[in-house]
Structures are given as structure tokens and as C-alpha cells.
């Protein structure tokens, strides 16, 4: 499915962001990429769809080599790789619907996208996706009117609108509260399972990673130092990835954080049931935070 072969990236400043990363991701597999800041997680993800140009190695998607492509070919491949961003990266001044439809940009000619005259099939798909992520009524709102969790749902819908064969997900929960983070991760997981989509998720929160991914890859200073199922991720491995730290204490603190958020939601009485059922509780949570 996706294969990286000795991928390397060296920035002009001389920093080696990636030093020969090789790995394979199979159909339907959800891979969590963990590692300290500056380990090259973000670079790795962006090298796959070549938003960042790798300086060495090769990327294969379905045995098609991507690193030598350019222009129209590259865009044709990019449209099959959905990407979900840290801080959502929605076009804030466009409506939710326009943002979702922008997932079709690689498919439609310029005049269609310019006049917003998308093929009916694309519009149908967009409405269905908005319903799937629970934002059907918000289609004509501007993206900057939504709360964080809602925006990330739009980001997910935009990526799916591309009919992707692969999802690249960059810190999807970086600016969300613990509760919403879990909901977003659960949504991503469900969607990947529904479509047996492979996904590479860049994630800084080890607990979340353990909970929602099939396989964890630990990256340190541009090199893979761990590759295995979440169950094998013990303190020794964490120390190998992140350096020495009191992991037990950290995990307890993180768990307490998550509980705090749920307590806060509970304190809001009537909302808590709906929140627990996962029915767009972000607004309330955002109000609490």
C-alpha cells in the first residue's frame, strides 16, 4: 500500500530532519507516529504527499513511485491522499460546504471550482460526509464560526471528500480539550475501519495513541527507534524515544487531566448525557474551557 524506502530530508539550514526512514503500511492499518518535537514527524508526513520535498529515498503508493513526479501527475496523486491538519487549516472565510467541496479541487477543472458549480455527485458526497461527521445543519456557516472540534470534523470531511486511498493526519488533537480529542480520534478510527483506509497519524499524546492506533512508530532525531503494536510500548521504549522521564507519573497526570474534563462536563448537569452520547458536545466543552 504505502511504502517508504530510505526516505531522507535535509533542510537548507543543514538540519537532518529524516535520516533514511523505511517502512510499509498495509491497507486499513492505522499507524501512530510518536516522538519528541523536532524528531521529524511533521516532515515525514509532508514528505509523503511532497508538501515538503524529500532530499533522498523513495515513496511508493500502490507501487507507484511519487518522488519523481511533478506538475499534473503529482496533483493527481495528491488528490488520492487525504490530509488532516493540526489547527484544522480550514479556509476560514469560506463556508463549511466550500471547505468540504475543496476536497474535489484536484478532480474538477478550474472554472467549476471558481464558479462553485461542482458535479452533483460531489455535492451529494459532501452532504453525506457532513452528516457522517454530525455537521449537516452547519453547511452554510462560515468555518470561523465553528468550535475547535467542529472545525476538525470539517477537516476530516474535506479529506474524505477527496476519495482518499490514504489519510495523513498531522496532530489532529493538538488544540482540542481531552474529551473532544477522544471523540475526534474515535471518529477517525471508525471512518478508517468503515473504508479500510490506511492512515498515518502524527500524535504527541502517547495515551491517545495507545488507545486508538494499531501500530506505533517511534521517531527520534529523524530515525525510527521503535515499530510495533501499542502493547509493546513500555517505559523502556518510551525512554528510548523521548529520553529519560518518570513515565508512570506522567501517565497518571494525563489520566487525571482527562478525568477532570469529564468531571467538568458532568458539572454541567443536563448536557452530560448528550455529551456522553457523543452528540456534538464541543460547543459546551469549548464554553467550559
Amino acid at each position: 500500500m504505502l511504502r517508504l524506502d530510505n526516505l531522507a530530508k535535509r533542510y537548507k539550514t543543514g538540519d537532518h530532519a529524516l535520516r533514511g526512514v523505511s517502512l510499509e503500511v498495509d491497507r486499513g492499518q492505522i499507524v501512530g507516529l510518536i516522538g519528541p518535537s523536532g524528531a521529524g514527524k511533521s516532515t515525514l508526513i509532508r514528505c509523503i504527499n511532497r508538501l515538503v520535498e524529500p532530499t533522498g529515498g523513495k515513496v511508493y503508493l500502490n507501487d507507484v513511485e511519487l518522488t519523481s513526479m511533478s506538475g499534473a501527475d503529482l496533483r493527481r496523486v495528491r488528490r488520492r491522499i487525504g490530509m488532516i491538519f493540526q489547527e484544522y487549516a480550514l479556509v476560514e472565510r469560506l463556508t463549511v460546504m466550500e471547505n468540504v467541496l475543496s476536497g474535489r479541487l484536484g478532480y474538477v477543472p478550474f472554472w467549476r471550482s471558481f464558479l462553485r458549480r461542482y458535479p452533483q455527485a460531489d455535492v451529494d458526497k459532501a452532504f453525506a460526509l457532513l452528516e457522517r461527521v454530525g455537521l449537516a445543519e452547519h453547511a452554510d456557516k462560515r468555518a470561523d464560526e465553528l468550535s475547535g472540534g467542529q472545525r476538525q470534523r470539517v477537516g476530516i470531511a474535506r479529506a474524505l471528500e477527496q476519495d482518499p486511498e490514504l489519510l495523513l493526519i498531522d496532530e489532529p488533537t493538538a488544540s482540542l480539550d481531552p474529551k473532544t480529542s477522544r471523540q475526534i480520534m474515535r471518529l477517525i478510527r471508525e471512518i478508517c475501519e468503515e473504508r479500510s483506509l490506511p492512515a498515518v497519524i502524527n500524535i504527541h499524546d502517547v495515551l491517545l495513541a495507545r488507545m486508538f492506533v494499531d501500530r506505533i512508530i517511534g521517531l527520534t532525531a529523524g530515525e525510527v527507534v521503535f515499530d510495533g503494536p501499542p502493547a509493546e510500548l513500555d517505559d523502556a521504549v518510551l525512554t528510548r524515544i523521548y529520553g529519560a522521564e518518570d513515565w508512570t507519573a506522567m501517565q497518571t497526570a494525563a489520566a487525571e487531566d482527562a478525568e477532570d474534563a469529564e468531571d467538568a462536563a458532568a458539572a454541567h448537569g443536563g448536557h452530560v448525557r448528550r455529551a456522553a452520547e457523543g452528540e456534538r458536545p464541543e460547543e459546551r466543552l469549548a464554553g467550559l474551557a
Partner: peptide, 26 residues
């Protein structure tokens, strides 16, 4: 905000489409 432009580019949009969706609204 460059991240919005990057997101539009990641959908496989052409140069003119990136301008129309990523830059002009901003």
C-alpha cells in the same frame, strides 16, 4: 495563514485553484 494554503494544496489543487481557495478568501 500559510497552513490554509498548504491544506488546499494537499487536496491536489492546481495553482489557480490554490489562489482561488487558499489565498483570495484570506
Amino acid at each position: 495563514d500559510e497552513s490554509q494554503v498548504e491544506a488546499v494544496r494537499a487536496t491536489g489543487a492546481s495553482g489557480a485553484q490554490v489562489l482561488d481557495y487558499g489565498i483570495v478568501p484570506q
